Computed example of a mutant assay.
Amino acid sequence: MKGTLWCLHGAVGQAADWQGLAVPGWAVKRVDLWRFLACCPMSMPEFGRALNAEAVADGRSQIADGLSSAIHHLPSTISRNVLVGYSMGARLGLHALLDGGPWDAAVLIAPNPGLESGAERAARREGDAEWAGRALSGEWDDFLDAWNAQPVLAGTGGGHRARLSVHFRREVARSFMDWSLGAQESLWGRLGEIACPVLWCTGERDGKFTALAERAVPALRQGELWIAPGSGHRVPWDAPEAFRAKLGEFLERALS
């Protein structure tokens, strides 16, 4: 086994969204982001630290397993960790990368490094507060329909739609507050701090996030931009075969 892909889903998504992802030689850890908000509020930097601590603990467990294997004369390897994040998950992933952590590479799909004016952030917080209210107390199916109908998401995903259970409405509402783009400090000036190789992905039909990517990637130490042909915002589900192929090729090249 080469390592583990730590996959972070998007807003109103779920860990199961990554079920179709498979890359030969790599384990896939589908991270449930809602468990981080189940207890209490958590800021984005706090999430980054929490995820990094979890990944470090997982690595220590692998080392212990490797030593046990060595004692019994079995082949052992210490696997690598790759952070894979989509949209909100990619924004959260940026915080984990900037906190350090045991990341050998990262694949970020359509993140926004941040809004740069106080007015923009205030407007986004106001809009996300409305989404939070709809998620917490509105009809859940109506909320999901409205979410999926947003211009950035409508007509994308190859039939992939947010189908999260109403059981998570409290955590989703909290995410619109704690993990709102309006609550996020601008990370544009810090992208150069990320040391590991990064594949930054957007869809060809996702003009807004492609423009953000074209600005962000040159600021990275080891950044690479991939624009998925024919894809919208939901790249892994709009172009699943192309995404898996690009992911495998990137990992083979970046970590060889």
Rank of each mutant, 00 (worst) to 15 (best):
L51P: 07
R91N: 09
V82A: 08
R91F: 01
E126V: 02
A90D: 05
E139Y: 00
R35A: 09
E130F: 05
P45R: 05
W147T: 06
P75N: 09
A149F: 00
A55G: 08
A38G: 10
E54Q: 15
D99C: 09
N112S: 10
C39Y: 01
A132S: 10
S68E: 14
L98P: 03
C40A: 15
S61N: 15
R121M: 12
G48C: 05
G133D: 01
G138I: 04
G138Y: 03
L92G: 11
W147I: 07
L92A: 11
S68P: 04
G133E: 13
D141F: 00
Q62V: 12
A90L: 01
D142Y: 03
R121K: 14
G118T: 15
S68V: 07
L83T: 10
Y86D: 04
S76E: 12
P111M: 09
W34P: 01
A110F: 02
A146E: 11
A119K: 15
E116Y: 02
A129T: 11
G85F: 01
E139P: 04
F143G: 06
L74P: 00
W131P: 02
R91V: 01
E126Q: 12
G133R: 13
D104N: 13
V107N: 10
G138A: 09
E116P: 01
D58N: 07
R121D: 10
A122G: 07
D142F: 00
A70V: 06
C39V: 10
E126G: 06
G66I: 03
R124A: 13
P102I: 12
A129N: 03
G89P: 03
R60K: 12
G127L: 07
R125A: 09
F47W: 13
S117Q: 12
T77N: 08
L108C: 10
R35D: 08
A50P: 06
P113Q: 05
P45H: 07
I109W: 02
E46L: 01
H95Q: 14
P102S: 15
S79T: 15
R80A: 13
D99R: 05
L94N: 03
A119S: 15
A55M: 14
A106F: 04
A53E: 15
A64K: 11
D128R: 08
L67Q: 14
H72S: 14
D142Q: 14
M44Q: 14
P111F: 04
D145S: 11
C40F: 00
F143I: 06
G127Y: 01
C40I: 04
R60Q: 14
D145Q: 11
D99F: 02
N112A: 04
V56I: 10
G100F: 07
F143C: 09
H95D: 09
A110I: 03
L98M: 09
I78F: 04
H95P: 01
M44D: 04
P75K: 05
G138V: 05
W147V: 09
Q62K: 14
L67G: 07
S117W: 05
A129Q: 14
E54P: 02
E126M: 06
D128A: 10
I109P: 04
A70C: 02
R121A: 12
G101D: 06
G101E: 06
S79V: 04
W131T: 07
A70L: 14
E126H: 11
D145P: 01
L115W: 03
T77V: 13
P111W: 03
